[in-house]
């Protein structure tokens, strides 16, 4: 799995359950790639921003 694929899987994992194989390969990639680990945290942060938003500033 390269980063381009990993970012796709990270994004998809937020919207559907990944298969066991996909999850495993993604986890392996994240283990060695700090860029994609950051990407994953940032995608989660974007979700947080959107969930908080209507309260802070509609």
């Amino acid at each position: 799995m390269n980063c381009k694929e990993a970012t796709r899987y990270i994004s998809e994992s937020m919207d559907r359950p990944l298969s066991t194989g996909e999850r495993l390969r993604l986890r392996l990639h994240l283990f060695i790639c700090h860029y994609c680990s950051d990407f994953s945290r940032q995608a989660a942060f974007l979700r947080k921003v959107n969930q908080q938003k209507p309260k802070s500033k509609p």
Partner: peptide, 25 residues
């Protein structure tokens, strides 16, 4: 991404304390 599909020089950087940003207008 570079030719092999890995992040190039513009890869994500670690964001310092993103939670704090939520408090800032």
């Amino acid at each position: 991404f570079d030719k092999t599909g890995h992040w190039g020089s513009d890869g994500p950087r670690t964001w310092a304390n993103p939670e704090a940003a939520l408090e800032q207008q």
